[in-house]
Design a protein around this nucleic acid. Structure first.
Lengths: 218, 218, 218, 218
DNA sequence: TATGAATGAGAGTTCATTCAT
DNA sequence: CATGAATGAACTCTCATTCAT
């Protein structure tokens, strides 16, 4: 008896729970496979057969986990974007002050883009016709994109309140900043320059601008 | 001299030349139709039949002017991008000094994006798998994208030489700036804010940065 | 004797028998579920998964009771048709004379068709390709359809022997009569006319025909 | 010139007309093939590939003539049913009086059923889920079925007006009569009995009924 | 017995591309 | 040059059936 109580932590969980957990794992495995294939071939280039093959399943099995190709794609997109936003948000929290947070967020975004180059290509390149049928999924995708901007915008607002950043619409500042990051991630794709350098470049440019300060002398 | 002047305006050109010119006109007409259809339906959504219909040709005729769908798409893309770069470049030339030129270029880019919203969506969202078969076309597309950055980079360099802009890799400055413009064009899509305001916002941010200048006192 | 009498009501039957009986009950439950689903969706529209769900079993379980979908369908069909013939036959037995029996049989057939409208639709609309593999089941189905006609044919023969019906091939009379009933059941589907009226109409028409009797005068 | 005017009847028709006519011929050829395949395999058993093969076309070609499988099926059904009704109606017109017309109509219906045994099987066995999408086609099918009954009902009404048939709802008489014909066509399928005999049997039964006339003597 | 995840053949459908006219 | 009917490979999706648990 004692044994069983003690051992309760290593006892098999209820079958129903275990089954649910395993189902989630298989779902994730399919998403992983789909990510690889979508990243390599784009949305239209990726066939369900190919994704199933990559996941070591039969094609029909995919449909046990996702209603159709669009649902699979938007689920993947959502997972990825949520991961991205979480990653940036988390990085920002490590900063001691708004500017430091911003610097860390920028760097995190660069790093995320770099780690997810292929998928990132697909994401910026394709948004499925956002049909009424998948409205729910797409609403969540949009909310996540919204959150993406909101994370940066909030940092900027904090900087404004601390009087270290100029006033102005934080959402617009965030969009301009994010645009620089994303585009540079694209462009610098090939170069092997250390990411930190680019991140700091963007951070610096965002703060100080490109204009040459009037020489203090005179 | 006299002959050539007279002939140039009223003599029939050689039949071969005329035919060539007409062929080019029909090609352009097809590109026009393709632009409308691609813009409305995206690359995969646009069928050759639909494009042919829009151009008032039979589907087979399209293939007399373009090798295949990819070739049509990349020709269209090239025309569009070249137009975009020309438009920005031209706007810049009207500026009296590097900063003025930059301001005008930014504004021109915003305006172009706005005028070509639909196509622009497609362009950022889709790049055909850049197959070996279409290497030549894609090389030209890349050269044009290169030129796009080069136009801005050159303005920046001029600013640097005039000591109004800080030193640093002009190509990187250009990428950061362009990213802001493009992303804001996307994001602001819905708002009816005057373009000029956004353009000036970006210009201003690019020059001065977001940091609050240390208070002049002391 | 006493033992057996007492035991027959309260003693547990042999486990083997009980199990067999329970198995039959489960089989019937599946047939009930299948009937509902086939009636609602037709043969091809009804999926095994849907039937299993309706029967509160897992899909695999169905295959423990029926070899395949066709076998399930033909077993169901057989049960239904047998029930139909029994029902008509039984109704006929209540008649005092052949004509009364015929009238009751016709009415019973109309009522059965009405009660089983949905399934009846499916039945007339679909006969599985009668494959060699299911020859046995289909033979029994055909025997039952045969019995269906035989029931009416026998009543007609009795009427012929009693000289109240004209001579002629009773099987052919039966087919003509049954055709009228079935077709009218279909056609009258929507109308809410009382069944009895239609049944009596058919009975009357079958007996007297549609021709106007020569006027008795003269 | 004169020649061409005179020859106008043998001159090639306008290309547009010829094209339209040929298109109709190809459409009919596909319907012919579809009829054979549907008759042999039923609606669900018949694949588009198989039908295309039977018509000596590629599968995609079918879709140039019919929107989808359902449209092909309902077009076929409509053609067949219209042919059937026309055939019965025409036969009736040859009759000198209502009863003669009825006799001819019954015979024509038997003959049609016999000639179209296979398709007829399919028709009675399958009605595609009558989706909203194909509402128009199905409306026409229903109208034709309606016309089928109407043809017989009108003959019966004429007989009633001439006082050779009893009064009563002609539509109901027609349904009862048609049911007998259809069902007997099914049942007698195998027998090689001359059709005329069955037709006359049904006609006779419909008119006089099965009841033995009371012997006039006594 | 019962389960239900997995299978995979096969269905309907689309559309870029060809070629006889 | 222009046509547009024909092609057929490739795609997404379904579902009867199996089998390890």
């Amino acid at each position: 008896m004692v044994h069983s109580v003690i051992g309760s932590s290593s006892n098999p969980p209820s079958p129903a729970l275990r089954r649910e957990r395993e189902k989630q794992q298989r779902r994730e495995a399919i998403l992983d496979a789909a990510e690889r294939v979508f990243a390599a071939q784009g949305f239209h280039g990726a066939s369900i057969d190919r994704i199933a093959q990559e996941a070591a399943y039969a094609s029909g099995t995919i449909y046990l986990y996702f209603k159709d190709k669009d649902a699979l794609y938007s689920a993947l997109l959502l997972r990825k974007l949520a991961g991205m936003v979480d990653c940036v948000e988390e990085a920002a929290q490590a900063g001691a002050d708004p500017l430091e947070s911003l610097r860390l967020a920028i760097r995190a975004q660069f790093e995320f883009n770099d780690r997810n180059r292929e998928f990132f290509e697909v994401f910026t390149r394709h948004r499925v016709a956002e049909q009424a049928e998948h409205a729910e999924e797409w609403k969540r995708v949009h909310e996540t994109l919204e959150r993406h901007h909101a994370v940066l915008a909030r940092l900027i607002e904090r900087g404004q309140r601390k009087k270290v950043l100029r006033s102005g619409d934080s959402r617009t500042y965030a969009a301009a900043l994010l645009g620089s990051i994303i585009h540079m991630s694209h462009e610098m794709e090939i170069s092997d320059a250390p990411l930190g350098r680019e991140a700091d470049f963007v951070f610096d440019l965002f703060l100080k601008g490109a204009q040459r300060p009037a020489s203090p002398s005179l």
